[in-house]
Amino acid sequence: MNLYALLEPAIVTLLVVFGLWLSLRKVAPRLSMRLGEASRKAGLAPAIANRVFGPPPARNSACGTCCGCDKGGSQSKPMIHRH
């Protein structure tokens, strides 16, 4: 069996897992955040949980997940005006 035949299932699995993860984050952000919350409670390191499921939303951040706030979501980075 050549190297390609050995690697192919692993690459396909990686791509599929990536696709599933991206779908979760993009199509079901609420579910993703709840999974993140559950995984943090279950003891997963917050840095890893944040990276995988997204950081926990700030209250009133207009993240669109709880439908409970009215705050505008856009914030600019500071602009420096010079002389």
């Binding site: 009215d70 705050k71 505008g72 856009s74 914030q75 600019s76 980075k77 500071p78 602009m79 420096i80 005006h81 010079r82 002389h83």
Partner: peptide
């Protein structure tokens, strides 16, 4: 112009329907 943001600008009334927040630093 003040904040360097890129919020939507339009030549009609009502383009902004919620408050937006930005920051800048004076000279």
């Amino acid at each position: 112009r003040l904040t360097g943001a890129r919020q939507k600008v339009a030549n009609y009334a009502g383009a902004t329907v919620e408050r937006k927040e930005g920051f800048f630093v004076l000279p």
